[in-house]
Amino acid sequence: MEIPYVTEPRKDTGLYNAKVGIWLFLASEVMLFGGFFSAYILLRVGSVEGTWPTELLNVPIGTFNTLVLIISSVTVVLAWSALKLKQFGRYKFFQAITIICALIFVCVKSYEYRDKFTHYDVILNDGTRVDGHLVEKTDEYITLSHPLSYPAEKGIAYRPIAIELRDNPPADAETAGHDGDAAAAHPAEEGADEHATTSDSHGDGHGHDLTIQMADVKKMTNWGPWANTYFAIYFTMTALHALHVIGGALVIAYLWGPGAKMWKTDPERYTNRIEISGLFWHFVDLVWIFLFPVLYLL
């Protein structure tokens, strides 16, 4: 039995059935992501003043991934247009770029995740907060590269100021006491933390490796979703989005590879399949267009 309205539109909806289906599905997706955006707003606005972390993500990398998704979105519509013009080779070319872009996006996202999972935040017994990339961790000590130190009571939102003070110390920093912000940004270098040892393995001024004894550690966590509310919502939203990227890429890759046989038997239906998968892909791009400024820039 032939399935009706696979290519020709129904009279009542004016659309072929798959198109009604994908729009209903996308409507449910809007509600799903809407719920998470709503949760984000609640957490962001409800956070205590000065406690919401900023500048923890790499903006150039996020911008690069945004551009990658935009390129993939345009290649999807160009691929669909090529099919409409019966240019199958051209379609294959553009859709191959889409799949490559999806792979690049996922790889870059994985790199970002790895960077966060290997970044440790350590609060010492003396009230100093140190964060840096993990070099080595044993039961006795933890070694961090590019450490940044500041008073724990100032909270993680103070981090950008601590970086600024570390990179551009004020002129009177040399003579400042240990109560000053400049000193707070350099306790390891100035020997404020008697339990920490440093070694300048990079020679770039602030590229020390800092070793901290576990006995001096009050609390320690990496920058995973459990680190704080910001990372919880960041990982939840970006992981959900990344799953959509992977799912969409798998469908597009299937239609590009084994599924492309349909082009020979039923080209119109195949073109519609590309349009449907493309609509999903544009939705994934659309979500990222909002996720990027919300998570990386605000």
Binding site: T13, G14, L15, V20, S73, V74, H282, I289
Partner: peptide, 25 residues
């Protein structure tokens, strides 16, 4: 988002059914 939805997703020129679904969403 308007440009992506309007042109890439063809919402500038779609059937009423789609607008109905999106309107309720």
């Amino acid at each position: 988002g308007f440009f992506v939805a309007g042109y890439f997703m063809h919402l500038m020129d779609e059937k009423k059914m789609v607008y109905g679904i999106l309107g309720s969403t």
